[in-house]
Design a binder for these strands. Structure first.
Lengths: 145, 145
DNA sequence: AAATATTTATTGCACGTGCAACAAAGTCAA
DNA sequence: TTGACTTTGTTGCACGTGCAATAAATATTT
């Protein structure tokens, strides 16, 4: 019979990735949650709207790695808060055209420097290892699913 | 006035880490969920018990990066399923002694090879980039919080 | 044109989650 | 020993989540 090998979770890639991701996300989220009252899904939608202009829910789902129901609910919260508008696309009336309001643009303009500063801090702390991390992540993310 | 810089979520480290982590976790979880009926928190508890023997909830919380309530609930589900036992530590009766049952040990003995095979596949797909990823993750995880 | 299939966004539901509150057990100081 | 404080694990609660079901709009087929 074969003995069960020993196994240390701390050496297990999925665990390590998750631990790293949740720590970073939490740290980043804490930095803007109190000041701006924004959740991670909401931040992602805002960032994508800033980058891409008026887009549909489906668009965000595809490019920002979020379920459409998650996008839909984040968008509703952002609309209630006055940061985005939802309009029906007149060409294809199934589609929504999500777009930043002036308040939304102002919010993003304050959020982006915070995000960039946070990222810069993390990368600086990693020093030369930051390039390895980025390269490794690219390999993972570009891999055929 | 200062213009708002452009910003692409796909270049943003927290986003990239989360996307990578959730894809890998989902892929791994799909591989054992159907066959073994185990969730990620439950898997973590099982793996740690295999590695560490009889331990308390607090122990798992500290070493497996999970909130104590999450550990507590995962342990209850595992107990109901017959995979672990919960006994009170006779020295300090606040503490629980969580321990694998024979059924639990048998389950872990089947799970670990699946986990190792999955990890090997991912690392192989990454090729030479896998070392970069591991080194980058180590740097992140070892960084002072 | 009419019938059928597909796409898009929302929502009901069951469930997992984090946090705060809590009870029980233990520690420590006076 | 008594009383205040700390630690450990569980639970109530509000909320976010994924998934399936749905309705509305569009596309496709006959």
């Amino acid at each position: 019979m074969t003995a069960t090998p020993d196994f240390d979770l701390n050496d297990f890639l999925p665990y390590r990735l998750n631990a790293a991701a949740s720590r970073i996300s939490r740290a980043f989220s804490e930095r803007y949650r109190d000041e701006f009252g924004i959740s991670i899904p909401e931040w992602r939608v805002l960032a994508h709207l800033h980058h891409a202009g008026a887009v549909s829910v489906r668009d965000i789902e595809a490019r920002v790695d979020m379920e459409k129901s998650k996008v839909s609910r984040a968008a509703s919260r952002l609309e209630s808060a006055g940061y985005i508008t939802k309009a029906v696309n007149s060409t294809d009336r199934r589609l929504l055209a999500l777009e930043l309001t002036p308040e939304g643009k102002a919010l993003v303009a304050r959020l982006i420097p915070v995000a960039l500063a946070f990222q810069a801090e993390v990368l600086e702390k990693l020093g030369p290892m930051s390039a390895s991390l980025q390269a490794g992540l690219s390999a993972l993310l570009d891999a055929p699913r």
